[in-house]
Structures are given as C-alpha cells and as structure tokens.
Design a binder for these strands. Structure first.
Lengths: 214, 214
DNA sequence: TAGATTGTTAATCGATTAACAATC
DNA sequence: TAGATTGTTAATCGATTAACAATC
C-alpha cells in the first residue's frame, strides 16, 4: 500500500505523467523523456516518480511503463472508483455528465440533481432527479464526492445541504468561495484564475515587442 | 498605466479579490477583511494589493472599494475586452458559450467553429461557423485569444491552425499537452489536476480517523 | 491622541535545481 | 566495460510569513 504523501505541486503534475504514459507505446520510459515532454526539470520528474513508484526505475532503462501507470493510478486513488453526484444540471453540468473520460480518473457520476427537474430524467446512464431527493440518496449511497455546478446564488445553501448529507469533497465550479468545515475539501475550478493568466499575457504581449536590454 | 508585474501566484489570487469586492457593499475594504474571507495571510493580501493599487490604501480605513476594483480590472486587463474564438462546439464548447459572466472577465466570445457545422448557426449572439472559415476570420478580425474545446485527437492540428492564423493565447480544455512556439501562451484547464487533489483527499480521509501522535 | 491599518525590510519556509554517488 | 539513468544530499531560489516603522 502506498501511503507516502507528496507536495500539492507534485500531486498536480502526476496526472500529466499518467496521461502521457497511457498514450505512450514504449515499454520503458525515463524521467528525462517525460521531463522533455512537459518542459519540466529532469530532477523534478525523477523525484516525483520516486515518490509514487514502488519498484523504482532501473538504470539505463528507466521505468517500466505498465508498472508506473499502475503505481500512479494507485497513488492517485484512481483504482477504487469514487462515486460522485453532480448538483446543478445546466449547460455546464450537462457537459460534465457527457464528458467521456472521468472513468479514466476514477470518477463515476452516478446521479445528478437539479431544482428544475420535477420527475426522473436521464442523460446517458446518469439519472437526473429533483433536488428534494438529494440528501436521502447521497446518505444512503454513502457518496463522498459532490460536483457543484449551480449558479452562484445557490452555491452556499446547496453546499451546506451536501455536507449535511455526508459529502466530504466538493468540486466547485461556481465562483463563490464556499464556507465549509475543516473536514471538507473544496477544490475550486475557477475560470477567472485561468483567464487572469491569459489576459495578462495578451496585455503584456504588446510591450514585449521590444525586449529589455541585458 | 500600471505596468508592474507580479508573481504567477499573486496573479491567480487577484481574481478572487476582484470577485469579492464586486459583491461587497462596504465603501472601504481592508486587507485583513479579504484575508479572512479567503483564509489567506494578511501580509500576503497586503502585498498583493500593494502591487495593483495605484492610490494605495489609507491607514485606519483600508482601500476604497471602487478604486481598488478599477485598479484590479486594469491590472488584469479586463478593461479592454479581449475578443475570443472557441473551436470545438460540443457539450463543453456550448456550455462555455452559454456561460454568462465571461464579460466580467473581459472576455468576449465572438465566434465559434466546429467541423460538424456545415452552414452558419447561432448560439445566443455567438455565430457558429464551419472550420474552413476559421483561419480567414481570425486573421481578419485580429483575434488573439482562442478557446480549444475539441477532442484530444484534433487538439494539436487545430492548435497549429489557430497559431498560423495569429492566435497568441490558447485556453486549452483538452488533456493534450500542446506544442506551441515560445511566443504563444497555453493555459491548461486540466480537469485531471483537480480530480487528483480531490481523490487524494478522499483516499487519505479514511486514514485520518486516527491522527498521528505528537 | 490611540490604534487600526498600510507598506516595507528581514527571516523563514518549501519547492526547485544542481551535484554526485550508485547501479545495471 | 562505459555510460545512461536512477536516487539522494546539498545549494539555490522564490514565495510566504514575521516584525516593525509610518500614517491618518
């Protein structure tokens, strides 16, 4: 069992490695190759891999791809599927439900809830139910992961309800900064953050024409 | 004109401050208040604000809300709207086009392109056109920002076409690691990264029941 | 005035990078 | 064997936090 911890930075890089490995066709992959692919420092990748790999790599060859994939999946907890519910089935909610590929990340959206839904609907294999059914089902099915795609006005009240029902981790797509107890983790997927980086680049772009001397 | 630069970390925090201020109703806001709201260190917020604020805050009162909002918007480049195109109008693309609120971040999605679209369609005010029209229009309208929501197989080729047409910043929603020239910025919106943090929390959760002694 | 708050300089902390020995 | 590659210890770098003087 791999119980090592790693820094948040490392944790964020790991899915990239995993994606690369899953699409690679060599039998062995070296840290140097991965570093080149993602324009990262070689030592950094080596350290990252050292924390997740159980067998370690071999000099001259690198890491066995299949083993390393397994170790990454295990470390990231992708092995035992996490059931998730999604609350707020608007455009974004629908897009997430339709997104093929969550399974690759150990996520299984089992149910959706929306206040506008009056009686059971379906999107693919996912059932969409009225909000009133939420607490009961989350509790009974012992679901720990909630995806929040309601509008910002409903964000906090809906979040509170999810937590009361037993949700332990919330993937928050609203711009609202949720107030939660310490035991609950909120992962903000904040568009504004990315946009800030992009606008900044576009803004500076004009000035970059004349690079600073020395 | 505010040409100061700031660290990437700071840049990422700024949109949060802006959101908070836009929804605040006091006339003055102190760094301490903001720090409390986002559970950040007070000095950190003070420093962040110091880099963007032109007039600075006043002792005892804090920052004038309206001025600070203006300074943040200016610093982030939200003042002069960035026109953007979106390529790939599937579920996610549609969700982004329908997302009200990009205007708050200085982004204006003017056109969408999709290979499945044969003749002009519309989603709200946004026109969706066939892929073949892309290069020509991006070039003529001098659009610098592209949102990439195609499937991973098309990601690189479509990205190349966008760059050839003059796109300088790409908001990449595909899991593919795009290869781009140095002058082009790619901002990855990678679901896998967030999911890694969430799964990790859920996985560790079980072990946390018994906290380590000392 | 007193004290809340700003802005800044110095200390700390953590993550990245460099250097290098170990190994197949 | 030689050398590519791993894994680790030490040095560097940058960001966060602490301490404090300035000010309304």
């Amino acid at each position: 069992m791999n119980n090592k911890t790693c820094s948040l930075q490392t944790l964020r890089r790991l899915p990239y490695y995993l994606y690369y490995l899953r699409n690679a066709d060599q039998e062995h992959v070296s840290a140097a190759t991965i570093a080149r692919e993602f324009k990262l420092n070689e030592v950094q990748v080596r350290k990252d891999l050292a924390t997740v790999s159980k067998t370690g790599g071999s000099p001259r060859k690198g890491f066995n791809k299949v083993e390393l994939i397994r170790d990454l999946e295990d470390f990231l907890g992708y092995k035992n599927m996490n059931d998730a519910v999604i609350v707020g089935v608007g455009h974004l909610g629908k897009a997430l439900i339709n997104f093929k590929g969550f399974e690759d990340y150990g996520i299984n959206i089992v149910l959706g809830f929306d206040k506008k839904v009056k009686k059971e609907e379906s999107i693919g294999k996912t059932k969409i139910l009225p909000m009133v059914k939420m607490e009961n089902l989350v509790e009974r099915m012992q679901i720990k992961l909630g995806i929040l795609t309601v509008n910002k006005e409903s964000a906090q009240p809906v979040c509170d309800r999810m937590i009361r029902a037993g949700i332990k981790a919330i993937w928050n797509f609203t711009p609202h900064m949720l107030k939660v107890p310490q035991t609950v983790l909120v992962q903000n997927e904040n568009m504004a953050t990315s946009l800030a980086v992009l606008s900044q680049h576009l803004k500076r772009d004009i000035q970059k024409e004349t690079p600073a001397a020395e």
